[in-house]
């Protein structure tokens, strides 16, 4: 491999990105905008009340008054038909009717808010009972310490997601675009080697992941106070090696695709499951069965986990050597396969 050729391709790939306003916006502007919106949306705040219905009948008002004492419940007294309709459409999470003088709760347990409503209703009933005074009051504290909030969980995930997008779209998509424009064909008839071109292109696009990640980290730190407790070197290593790993996957996807439609489909097939299960927006450790296995098989899960480790815990490079080795091995394997499969035209 001749480094002067790799350098020239790297420079071209970098400049092509840097001079394209749309590419810069989608790389820098979009993730920042998403962090901004999600950060505000998930600020620690009082939770909204859960809507429940009490079906009008003799004795209903007694229960309605009891439930209204809970600040977490939004109680409506409805006739039976209206209550059933509201429950069916999800406008209320639960309905209560009185049968033989005793309350009966109706809800669909597969809806997460239904279980919460049931617990809140039962709690309100316990609070109203004569025995309530004998139970020691439970004090609740809002978790708003830096490092433990949702935004602290989200920012490392957004960095991971951005590395994935940069690898798949920044590298994979653009390679296929060059193929459709005959530019790869034209380069093929020069003495440029595959390895020189692919390495240069991969580097040219990946060199941007560092500033890209730093912008998100700075944004999170300055605006939300997201901590960086681990080693900066470890964070940078994960960004660079993780970014190269995703770029390797991007090159592999693009190595034989001939049309924009094909590469779009391939990118979606790779990215969509990782968007959902890769642990960016919620912790995938709580998943079970095949879904958990799938999540554990996704590189984004491990990139996000490693990023959270170094950002939220006082960890050094040695603590993330294993995942770094994994990212390097996967990226290297993809690059090796892409070299063998790559077609210029």
């Amino acid at each position: 491999m001749r480094w002067r050729v790799v350098r020239a391709v790297t420079r071209t790939a970098f400049l092509e990105f840097w001079r394209s306003p749309a590419a810069v916006f989608w790389t820098y502007g979009f993730p920042l905008g998403m962090a901004f919106v999600l950060g505000f949306a998930f600020q620690p705040a009082a939770l909204p009340p859960v809507p429940v219905a009490v079906i009008a009948s003799p004795g209903a008002e007694h229960y309605a008054t009891m439930l209204r004492r809970s600040a977490r419940l939004d109680v409506e007294v409805l006739d039976e038909a209206d209550a059933d309709r509201a429950l069916a459409r999800g406008r209320v999470a639960l309905s209560l009717h009185v049968q033989d003088g005793a309350p009966v709760l109706r809800s669909d347990p597969t809806r997460p808010e239904a279980e919460l409503a049931r617990l809140l209703v039962e709690r309100a009933m316990i609070d109203a009972s004569p025995q309530a005074a004998s139970i020691a009051p439970v004090r609740h504290e809002v978790e708003d310490r830096p490092g433990a909030r949702y935004i602290d969980f989200l920012v490392p995930g957004l960095i991971g997601l951005n590395l994935l997008g940069a690898g798949m779209y920044g590298v994979g998509f653009n390679l296929v675009q060059m193929r459709t424009q005959n530019l790869l064909r034209r380069l093929f008839v020069t003495p440029m080697r595959r390895s020189e071109f692919i390495a240069g292109y991969l580097l040219g696009r990946s060199v941007l992941v560092l500033p890209e990640a730093l912008v998100i980290v700075l944004f999170g730190t300055l605006l939300w106070g997201v901590p960086l407790r681990g080693s900066v070197l470890a964070l940078l290593s994960i960004v660079v090696v993780g970014g190269l790993c995703f770029s390797g996957i991007g090159v592999l996807c693009a190595s034989r695709a001939r049309t924009i439609e094909t590469i779009s489909g391939l990118i979606n097939a790779v990215m969509l499951p990782m968007w959902i299960l890769g642990g960016t927006f919620f912790a995938n450790e709580n998943l079970e069965g095949p879904t958990r296995w799938a999540a554990e098989a996704m590189p984004l899960t491990h990139v996000n986990r490693a990023l959270r480790t170094v950002m939220l815990e006082p960890c050094g490079l040695l603590d993330v050597l294993l995942p770094l080795g994994g990212f390097a091995a996967l990226g290297g394997l993809c690059f090796w396969l892409a070299l063998r499969m790559f077609r210029w035209q």
Binding site: R4, A8, T12, L15, Q181, N182, R185, R186, V189
Partner: peptide, 25 residues
Amino acid sequence: VCLQETRFHEHATVREVLALFRVSF
């Protein structure tokens, strides 16, 4: 080689395109 149709990087300058094609010789 001059192919029937090639679209070079649209943000690259004339000098940069030629430098890229020169470098591997």
